[in-house]
Design a protein around this nucleic acid. Sequence first.
RNA 1: GGGCAAUUAGCUCAGUGGGUAGAGCACACGGCUUACAUCCGUGCGGUCGGGGGUUCGAGUCCCUCAUUGCCCACCA
Length: 884
Amino acid sequence: MADIETGAMPKTFNPRQVEQSLYQRWLQSGAFTPAIDWSQRPFTIVIPPPNITGELHYGHAMFVAFQDLMIRWHRMLGQPTLWLPGTDHAGIATQNVVEAELAREGLTRFDLGRERFVARVWQWKEKYGAIINRQLQRLGASVDWTRERFTLDEQLSRAVRVAFVRLFEKGLIYRGNYIVNWCPRCTTVLSDLEVDHEETNGKLYYIRYPLVPTDRAHTDPDAIVVATTRPETMLGDTAVAVNPADERYVGLIGCHVTLPFIGRVLPIIADTAVDPAFGTGAVKVTPAHDPNDYEIGRRHGLPAVNILNPNGTINAEGGPFAGLDRLEARKAVVQKLQEQGLLVRIEDHVHSVGHCSRCNDIIEPMISEQWFVKIKPLAEPAIQAVRDGRIRFIPERFARIYFNWMENIRDWPISRQLWWGHRIPVWYCDRCGQTIASVETPARCPSCGNQELRQDPDVLDTWFSSGLWPFSTLGWPEDTEDLRYFYPTSVLETGYDIIFFWVARMIMFGLEFTGKPPFEVVYLHGLLRDEHGEKMSKSKGNVRNPLEVIDRFGADALRYALVTGSTPGNDMRLSEEKLEGARNFANKLWNAARFVLSTGQPPTVEPDPAALTAADRWILSRYHRTVASVSSLLEEFEFGEAGRILYEFVWSEFCDWYIEIAKVQIRSGDAARASTTRWVLFRVLDGILRLLHPYMPFVTEAIWDHLPGRDSMLIVARWPSAGPTDPDAERTMDLVMEAIRVIRNARAEFRVEAGRRIHAVIVAEEHVSQFESQRSIIEALARVEPLTIVSAISEPPRRALHLLARGIAIYLPLAEMVDLEVERRRAEQDLARLRAQIASLDHRLSEPGFTTKAPPEVVQRERERRAALAEQIEKIEERLAALA
RNA sequence: GGGCAAUUAGCUCAGUGGGUAGAGCACACGGCUUACAUCCGUGCGGUCGGGGGUUCGAGUCCCUCAUUGCCCACCA
């Protein structure tokens, strides 16, 4: 090998050898930390803070790939670029994993008590926070570690309290008794979003409620039958309802029944919410444990009897069933009903049952006193911001999903009966009954001076703090320089599954607290699925640690596969094959660089354009086109397409063609030509490294390291700008490459030994000089010798293969291989194909509307195609005549 | 009950101002051609889910149906 640095470059790219040290060098160079420069517009992304519940998985690698791509690209554009890292305390989720850990030690959180339990969770946070950061580093995330945040940091916690108090003082936070989703396992309230509904094969129980004796006299039946899927809730019934228009029951409205087991006397009421077609048309009403019944109860002033303890067991209201878990109570109630002859029948019934999204326990609707955010006043401006384009969703369709949710949004229960999270900044004075919301812990009650205040024991929904993330991380509520400079952020990149949980809340809070939309663009990637298309989840056991993949294929391969294998908003599967392909691409680039470096030092001065060959000018032209299209695709967030274009350019054009051509030019014996070729090789390689760096930061930086004369790292190199194209050179090379292709094709078809050189005649017509200038390239790449290039021939050679390249005739006199009969058949087949093409073109051109209505350039192009086809047909006909 | 996506080569997927269908993998044939066998060359392979419509022209726009997946919805 000729030399320079390639000695240090192994034959295959070894990511493990370079990744970690390159990351350290980036980090130490300070490239991740932007300098505030008010003369320039910054580019900012705040990381979607990973939950500290555990290690990162594949899905996280996805957001790293996209965000780091944008970040590195903008950094190369010269903008002050901030990617702010951090993690989320993830209230209920983290509390659950730590509780599960305790359970393995035979403990519950109550054994530790609140303080010790929270300390235990902090230990967990330290451990997993560190693991997550290590994983981000292995992925190559160029985040600014000097600005790392955690949602429970003191400053961010203060932001939470300030936000709460401001909403409270504005009357947008209230406390009240409403029916909510209750998870008995987590013993906390949940928002609607945290409840997963699953279709379940359940039962519909028909239960007889006896009429009170006084009512029995004037009616026919002595009981009314109701249907329910949750018979145990009958313990909390306070009425039976029928539809007022239901003739079966009109006579019973106003009568009373006796609730079995409990003995409570329940009125039979009329309410239009009752569907006469369902069940018996009579429904038991349990205002405390069913949202519908809650509404009915409100309309009719019914009492609500809560029959459940927080842990899901039946409380004293359940009489004989007190103490049983609700599901055991169901069985017991059914059995007792049966014994007493009150169970009419049981039907199979499919219905959806709410489950806790965190622990999967069955959710119980329950009346409970909670804190709520009055959401409509926040939602309206948030809808407006998207509607008027201040925030743009990519892909756009998600804006509709956002609107649909925001327009039907319900008040947000924000208190959680948990220990891990931001304590609600509200204190109660038990002496005078005052409720105090305060950023700082109040010393005494402002109205009665009582110093013994009791803080609300609950914590806030974890998404309350996440909603503040884009600005709390930059210093809000303080008016910091970071906040002024980097906020609003540029792009919010995340999965479409947390639009409601997170994106919507950030928009509402951002507008409410800062008066500005928190970001300009919401880019939503699809969810990562396994090779079988299954959603990845811990319970399915198909989650993979990205580090395992990085160890096998390299971080570049993982990132490239994630970014190019997907379309925004569409799910993707990641297969081994895709990862292999991406790894191979990194290796291809590595080896292209090894070749370029092996050619020796490039000239330091740009060569005279006149010294460039058509091939040189062609690859430079193609490179400039690539720069232009990659840049514009990135502007349009078409990351996958830009990645594919780069792949195509690097592999098919630069490696497969130009490098092969360069070998010929370098070995031509012409020192000047060899030198300009080296210049072109280095020039294009340099550009490729820059363009590819946001996709494959490690391999590109590693190669950059070997390039001569680099005094700074690629991470801070400038993004290239597109130079002029050279259509002339492109046309010439298109002809030459096509000629080489058809010759190769014929060689393969006729089984010419790969190494054998054969004679070829190109009838170049007016292109003689173009072919002549590329003679040595054609000879080498098509393996022809001697090569005869003529403008015309009087008589075509008889015993030769006749090929056409863009209408140019090429003859391969392969006397011993050519069977005239076979040749004739080939010619006839070609002719038939061309005639079919020309016929369809003629058809189009003759259609009345086409020539008049289609754009002139389209018509023109079709005419040219027709002319070219006609010319080819003519040549083949001549050839056939010659063969005859 | 609403809504959204997907349906393109054997497989996984691109195809984003409508203008002659692409890639990777797989497969077949031939190659260790001194950057790379994680490679090179050549080839095979698609009535773009069905039906209708708009248009000179539809994978691309509209309607409809089918299959699959997902989201939303207080289905006792």
